[in-house]
Design a protein around this nucleic acid. Structure first.
Lengths: 126, 126
DNA sequence: GTTTATGCAAATTCTTTGCAATACT
DNA sequence: AGTATTGCAAAGAATTTGCATAAAC
């Protein structure tokens, strides 16, 4: 909630997502930016960016929290439900734009759906 | 791997899954069975049951490991990829039998897919 | 100047490991 | 008897919290 201040940590993290295009785990970001920012800061900024609809998160089978850029989300509604693909060989997580169809479920209201597909990625399949 | 001994812990855990029909988190099982078994035992038995194709696991958005009974899996292949539904109100996780369609992804080999749908469950929607 | 973000250390939470004791076949 | 399982305590790993300092608006 609230306004996002354009601090160094916020800008740096947003840059990481812009230049990568894939999902990135909190752990990886902490490792990558440990000379510049404290891990607590990274966790807090990621959390805030998610709150404000700039990132969305999901848990990989590795138990780590992964973040990716949202496309068309707002602070109140996370619409960007694209599936994620995690390579079981190299661990990389990509955002996919393939459609996932989930039929209506009687008596239940669907708010969010999280699809994690696992397999072998483009690089590792070679 | 190896033969599953029908120990009390194994039998008790399998019973929990039989009588519930829903997915159950390791944490909940530990809480529920803490007078009978050590948490280490519960983690280890769940792990073994998964290895042997009797249970499968996934991570909820809560960061907890959830387990559910497999249908038609073997120790070598986990075929039971039904989606899970987690109620954001009461936290309960159900196994659903609705179909999920994921189209082929070029240059990638799909091995596993995990679908977690979140929303409001039958009870909480009333 | 006031509010919000940051860094550090410590605490939390879930899960795993080592090892001696116990139970299973 | 021999092997796998169990319990307990301690270790691990990721994340969160409290609080004083620093930066943003």
């Amino acid at each position: 909630m609230g306004i996002i201040r354009k601090t160094k940590a916020v800008e740096t993290l947003l840059q990481e997502f812009s230049k990568s295009g894939t999902a990135i785990s909190a752990k990886l970001l902490i490792e990558r930016l440990k000379s510049k920012f404290n891990k607590t800061t990274i966790y807090r900024v990621l959390d805030k960016l998610e709150d404000d609809g700039l990132l969305h998160s999901f848990l990989g089978k590795d138990g780590l929290k992964w973040y990716a850029k949202c496309h068309g989300c707002t602070a109140t509604e996370h619409q960007d439900l694209h599936p994620h693909f995690q390579c079981l060989n190299c661990g990389k997580v990509d955002c996919l734009q393939v459609p996932v169809t989930i039929s209506e479920i009687p008596n239940r209201k669907i708010l969010v759906s999280q699809v994690l597909i696992q397999g072998t990625c483009e690089e590792c399949i070679k």
